[in-house]
Amino acid sequence: MLSVGDAAPDFDLVDQHGRSATLAQMLGRRIMLVFLPLAFSGICANELQQLADDRPLFVTAGTEVIVISVDSMFTLRAWGDEADTPYRLLSDFWPHGRVAERYQAFDSATGRATRTSVAIDENGTVRAVFSAAPDRARTTAMYARALAMFDERA
């Protein structure tokens, strides 16, 4: 199980524009990885909109939000354009769900990511992990609590 204090697993994915994204490239910044089950689904669309609405919370905390789903880069491009999201959407399409598995955020029974979020500090250390049930969105309060963990002593 991924726990607070663990080194976050590196990954190498592409975003909705085909650009490479690795955790190693992001070291030196605070990151909030947000795993979403499926693009264009109702709860995921609502969560993506809520993340956009909560952008000031993340900016104040100096944290970059990175969304990951098992959808293809092309699906994520269409979804990102439709949603007009300010965030990078990373495709964990192939090998299917490999990064989600590394983060214990993959449901092998459904072949989708779980609703898991992981706060990673500038050194690549996990500072918070939280999840919501498949039929429930994560809340602003959950993110606020996780962001507060960046300022807690390890």
Rank of each mutant, 00 (worst) to 15 (best):
L23C: 08
F74G: 02
I43K: 12
T116R: 15
F93P: 00
G62H: 07
T139I: 06
R136A: 15
R153W: 11
E82F: 07
G80S: 08
R112P: 00
P56W: 09
E64L: 06
F150R: 07
T110H: 09
V67I: 10
F93W: 11
A61M: 09
V70H: 00
I66M: 09
A132K: 03
L33C: 10
E82G: 08
A45D: 13
G5L: 09
D84I: 12
R138K: 14
D92C: 05
T60S: 10
A100T: 06
C44F: 04
S3P: 04
Q50M: 15
A39F: 12
V70N: 01
D6F: 07
S91L: 03
Y103I: 09
F150G: 05
P95G: 04
A133Y: 13
L90Y: 02
S3L: 12
S72Q: 08
D10N: 15
D107T: 05
H17N: 14
V34Y: 00
L89F: 02
A154N: 15
M26G: 02
A128M: 00
R138V: 13
R127V: 06
G62E: 02
T125Y: 02
Q25W: 11
I68T: 10
F40S: 12
P9K: 10
R19Q: 13
M26A: 10
L147E: 01
I43L: 11
F11I: 06
T63S: 05
S41L: 01
E82Y: 12
D53Y: 14
A45Q: 09
A52M: 05
M73W: 04
A148M: 04
L76G: 01
R138M: 14
R77W: 02
L23S: 09
D92G: 04
F35A: 03
